[in-house]
Each structure stands twice: as structure tokens, then as C-alpha cells.
């Protein structure tokens, strides 16, 4: 566990001593802030629903941009060989990197606390859905980080890792909007694998074990896939 923390610390430090973190977080705040507040006064409702509605789409391209380097860069430079021959297991590396990604997402979400605080001054804000929304955002972020890690383990090229990660995240987000393309017998299943559907459930303030299980499964499948890919490489 100590090794996991050490690796996680190093990855986080890498993010925050380079411009990546600041660029990604600024873009995230700009995009969400812009889309949220341009319509906020128009609806005249004191809630964060529009903000959370938009989150899965922004995460779909933002998180792969954060995770793309985690394995690709190491494979490309060759530093992975030095890391893996230190007394760490692959699990330590994987969990450390995953944790760093999740903490990064959390760090990106922290400045958005300004929105509910601001809204609470303007009107009667219901805090339940807000708390649910942030919990959901974290779970959604974690599952996209796992997917991004998987994409990153596939290739040495960060751009390919980004595009593959983004494609998977977008598919997970949008698939339940495309239900009319699928045969009726598959609808239940396809509807269930859509990330947006589960996220919106939690964001409404309803904590259902099915949604939690969904996100945890995506995390597990992503990490396990990464494990298999990296094992195959050696």
C-alpha cells in the first residue's frame, strides 16, 4: 500500500509541476462555467442540474487527456522497465496511477464548489442533489480514469491513447441516447451500460446500489483490462 501511495504522489506531482494540470482544469472550468451560466438565469431555478447534465460529455474528452500519458509515456521513454524492476508489483503501479487520476479529477471538481455556494446565496438550493451530483461525478470520473488507463496501456503514442480513450468514454456516455438503433431484445442491456443514465440517477440525489455497482464494475473492468494488456506485453 505504501508503494501505491508513493507512485500516486509522484504522478500527481508530475501533473501539477507541469502545465498539464492547469491547462486541463482551466479548460474544464471554462467549458462547464460557460455552458452552465449562459442558461442559468434564463431557467430561473436554483439548482445545479444543467451543470451535472453536461458533466459526462466534458469528462469524456477531458479525462482521457489527463490519463493518456500514464502508461503511454512510460512505454515510449522506456522508464516502465526501470519502474517495474524496482521492488513494486504491477498492482502497485496500476493502483497508484489510477488513484492519481481520480485525485486529479477531484481536484478539478473542487473549484466548482463555488457554483452551489453562489447559488445558495441567490435562492433556495437543495443540497441533497448537489451532494449526490458530486458523488456521482467522482464515480463517473473514476470509471473514465480506468477506461483512460486502459487506452493508455494499449499504445506508446499518447495521441492514439487519447482518441481511443475518448471514443470509449463517449460511447459509454451516449449509447443510451442511441437506443432506437438497437433491436428490442438488447434495449435493456444497452440502456444499462450507458454511463449517463446511471450518473443522472445519482445526480438526482437517488443513491441506488445498482448505479454504484455499475460504476465500480466499469472501474474494475478497465483496470483488469489494463492488467491483461500489460501482462501480455511482457
Amino acid at each position: 500500500m505504501q508503494q501505491v501511495i508513493r507512485i500516486c504522489k509522484k504522478e500527481l506531482k508530475d501533473y501539477f509541476i507541469s502545465p498539464i494540470a492547469y491547462i486541463v482544469i482551466s479548460i474544464f472550468l471554462l467549458v462547464t462555467g460557460w455552458f452552465f451560466f449562459t442558461t442559468f438565469f434564463y431557467y430561473n431555478q436554483a439548482d445545479l442540474r444543467n451543470f451535472f447534465n453536461l458533466l459526462p460529455i466534458t469528462f469524456s474528452f477531458l479525462i482521457p487527456a489527463v490519463t493518456m500519458r500514464l502508461f503511454s509515456e512510460e512505454l515510449n521513454v522506456g522508464s516502465y522497465e526501470m519502474l517495474l524492476t524496482l521492488p513494486v508489483t504491477f498492482k502497485d503501479i496500476l493502483l497508484g496511477k489510477f488513484l492519481a487520476g481520480v485525485l486529479f479529477v477531484a481536484a478539478a471538481l473542487v473549484p466548482t464548489f463555488a457554483y452551489p455556494i453562489f447559488i445558495a446565496f441567490m435562492g433556495q438550493l437543495e443540497w441533497g442533489p448537489v451532494a449526490g451530483g458530486y458523488l456521482g461525478a467522482l464515480l463517473l470520473g473514476a470509471s473514465f480514469v480506468a477506461v483512460g488507463l486502459f487506452a493508455s496501456s494499449l499504445t506508446r503514442n499518447q495521441i492514439i491513447a487519447f482518441i481511443v480513450g475518448m471514443a470509449i468514454c463517449f460511447t459509454l456516455t451516449l449509447i443510451d441516447k442511441m437506443l432506437f438503433f438497437f433491436p428490442g431484445s438488447l434495449l435493456g442491456f444497452i440502456g444499462y451500460i450507458g454511463a449517463d443514465f446511471h450518473f443522472q440517477n445519482i445526480a438526482k440525489g437517488i443513491i441506488d446500489s445498482r448505479d454504484i455497482v455499475y460504476f465500480l464494475s466499469v472501474v474494475f473492468i478497465g483496470l483488469y483490462g489494463t492488467h491483461l494488456v500489460m501482462q501480455e506485453k511482457n
Binding site: 508503494q3 508513493r6 507512485i7 509522484k10 506531482k13 508530475d14 509541476i17 507541469s18 521513454v77 522506456g78 522508464s79 522497465e81 526501470m82 524492476t85 524496482l86 521492488p87 513494486v88
Partner: peptide, 27 residues
């Protein structure tokens, strides 16, 4: 074991001290 791979692929973004500190931690 201590292992030095061919052409010593180190993390480019780190300072030498930070890198050695990191390795010492993992060790």
C-alpha cells in the same frame, strides 16, 4: 537486484534529486 536498462530511460520531467528521492522511497 539493481538494474540499469540500456540507455537508462529515466523520467524526463523530474529533477535528478526528485528522481533519486522517489527511487529511494520505492526501495
Amino acid at each position: 537486484m539493481g538494474y540499469l536498462p540500456e540507455s537508462a530511460p529515466l523520467y524526463h520531467s523530474m529533477l535528478v534529486y526528485d528522481y533519486l528521492d522517489y527511487v529511494a522511497g520505492l526501495r
